[in-house]
């Protein structure tokens, strides 16, 4: 597995931000996209870096597209806009990438992690095909896939994929480590924390051998 190295984010138009990494979380309302952003941010904070999680909303409703941008930096984060140039995209839903442009603005060498039973190769082909609203014309990007819904059903008994996907983020990127994810899950969910820790670990293991 290739480690994911944070890079300078060129925010276009000559504005070279301080080293700032952006992670986009996407899914449907009710799947825990916003919560996943908060949990990731808390984990980043506890690792001593700065974080900002910014959900992008329309008039909210269950089942519709929900997105959240997590910004990570060694310095306080001044950027207060919803436009993003993510280097990591995490899709919590098996199908919404077909119908919504969740790859908008994604940078070269991106990591894309999708909750699906499809293989990474199959998904990469779909993302390159131009047949779906999420399209990647990048030269290089890495796709990881995992059946996070299946993992969640087994570990938690509910199809809430977010904590399994956090485990996958810990495995596929260096945004955060699995230890930090486990710590925030226990702090946030109390007695239900352990089941979510199991889901996160399964998610971590599921992408351990992701394709390049």
């Amino acid at each position: 597995m290739q480690p994911h190295v944070p890079r300078r984010t060129d925010r276009a138009g000559g504005v070279s931000a301080v080293a700032l990494e952006e992670v986009r979380l996407a899914g449907r309302g009710g799947q825990g996209v916003v919560t996943a952003g908060e949990l990731l941010g808390e984990a980043v904070l506890s690792s001593g870096r700065h974080a900002q999680s910014l959900p992008t909303f329309g008039p909210e409703r269950r089942g519709a597209l929900a997105q959240c941008t997590l910004r990570v930096s060694d310095q306080p984060i001044l950027l207060k806009c919803s436009s993003a140039r993510p280097s990591v995209v995490v899709c919590l839903d098996p199908t919404i990438w077909r119908y919504a442009p969740i790859t908008l603005g994604v940078q070269e060498d991106a990591v894309v992690i999708v909750n699906t039973t499809q293989s990474p190769a199959k998904l990469e082909e779909a993302l390159r095909s131009g047949r779906f609203l999420s399209e990647l014309t990048l030269e290089r990007f890495t796709v990881y896939t995992l059946d996070a819904t299946g993992i969640a059903m087994e570990a938690i008994g509910r199809p809430i994929s977010n904590t399994a996907m956090l485990g996958a983020v810990a495995a596929a990127t260096d945004v955060i480590g699995l230890d930090d994810v486990e710590t925030v899950l226990r702090a946030r969910f109390g007695p239900a924390g352990e089941a979510n820790v199991v889901a996160a670990r399964s998610g971590f293991d599921a992408v351990g051998g992701g394709t390049i």
């Binding site: 974080a51 999680s53 910014l54 207060k80």
Partner: peptide
């Protein structure tokens, strides 16, 4: 404070 951009953004 700006709606969403601050009201819904988590920051330290």
């Amino acid at each position: 404070y700006d709606g969403f951009i601050l009201s819904h953004a988590n920051e330290p």
